[in-house]
Amino acid sequence: MRELYEKLKTRFPLGEFTDQRDNLGFITVDKDQLRPVLYHLRDHEGFSHLVLLTAVDWIEEDRFQLTYLLSNRTRSVDVGLRVMLDRGEPVMETIHDIWPTAATYQCELREMFGIDFPDSPGVMDDFILEGWDDLPPYRRDFDTKKYSDETYAHREGRVTHDPAEYMKKQLYPDEV
């Protein structure tokens, strides 16, 4: 994998490289370098299969990570391209013209993370969440527990006790 990274590095400015396994590596790529790198990988390095496109919310670092995972089916190796986006203005270029399936991923990312991909077909359509008006739910600051507590009623009559506190009361009844 390092070989590929070194080779790419002569052509593109690349960020951090992670050698995860013999057949899997991750490379951080600049936002505006993504397309040329994708084209190069697809057309010259045999990475013709877009395995997945997804996002990771690094809320503490105030950025989203987009992961474009590509596979070279002939050599059976995978490379993940990491693109870091400003969390305040999460917009990314669409790649549906390179892989038509990307449109589905981009539609989902728009809905679940609030990352926009202008010009991606149907990107503004509802994917899963019809009539959702809360924060994009896969963002880290969307609290599922809180949402569920507010939206649904808990079953009545459930009470639990802390073993430490309960035992303490039995052992040392005089203590307050």
Binding site: P163, A164, Y166, M167
Partner: peptide, 11 residues
């Protein structure tokens, strides 16, 4: 589990 906390005289 905290059974130790309950048992320890000084908690």
């Amino acid at each position: 589990c905290g059974l130790c906390v309950a048992t320890c005289p000084a908690h």
